[in-house]
């Protein structure tokens, strides 16, 4: 039995006022589908951090959600500066966030690490000057 749960959410750069909106929506969607709390929490955290990164560093992007019988697939793509050194960006505490971003409570350098920690499979690729692509798989 395949259920067709597919959603695409646009995310605009610099719209800090909107940060977390997609995540809160996704949480409600997953709850309705009957995903257990502990699992939908991981999805919500991964999406939240991804949204904030697009808002903080990219021009614009999308967060896509696909729910299959076995998995929650989250695909995050943005158009932006990209990340030159992915390994460094993944390190806990590494952040290039400016004072404006920090004043809002972001810039701990924990986001990508949190995303990886919430994923069963985490893949990341980036091209300098073009953008960044995250593929997050969470088992249901």
């Amino acid at each position: 039995m395949t259920q067709g749960h597919n959603y695409v959410f646009p995310v605009e750069g610099e719209r800090f006022d909107e940060a977390g909106k997609v995540s809160v929506q996704v949480k409600q969607i997953l709850k309705k589908i009957g995903i257990p709390d502990a699992v939908l929490r991981r999805a919500a955290i991964a999406i939240y951090e991804s949204e904030v990164n697009i808002i903080s560093y990219a021009i614009h992007g999308t967060a896509s959600l696909q729910v299959t019988d076995d998995h929650i697939l989250i695909d995050i793509q943005d158009v932006g500066p990209g990340i030159t050194d992915i390994e460094q960006a993944m390190e806990q505490g590494y952040s290039t966030a400016n004072d404006h971003i920090r004043a809002m409570g972001f810039g701990a350098g924990m986001g990508l690490f949190n995303i990886k920690n919430c994923s069963d499979i985490f893949e990341m690729s980036s091209e300098e000057g073009k953008g960044t692509h995250l593929k997050i798989t969470i088992n249901r």
Partner: peptide, 22 residues
């Protein structure tokens, strides 16, 4: 889940975060 968030921040993010982590 179920914990209280203690913070000096006041922007709407604190509410969205609280909702995400219950």
């Amino acid at each position: 889940p179920g914990s209280i968030m203690i913070t000096g921040l006041t922007n709407p993010q604190i509410v969205r975060i609280a909702s995400i982590v219950d």
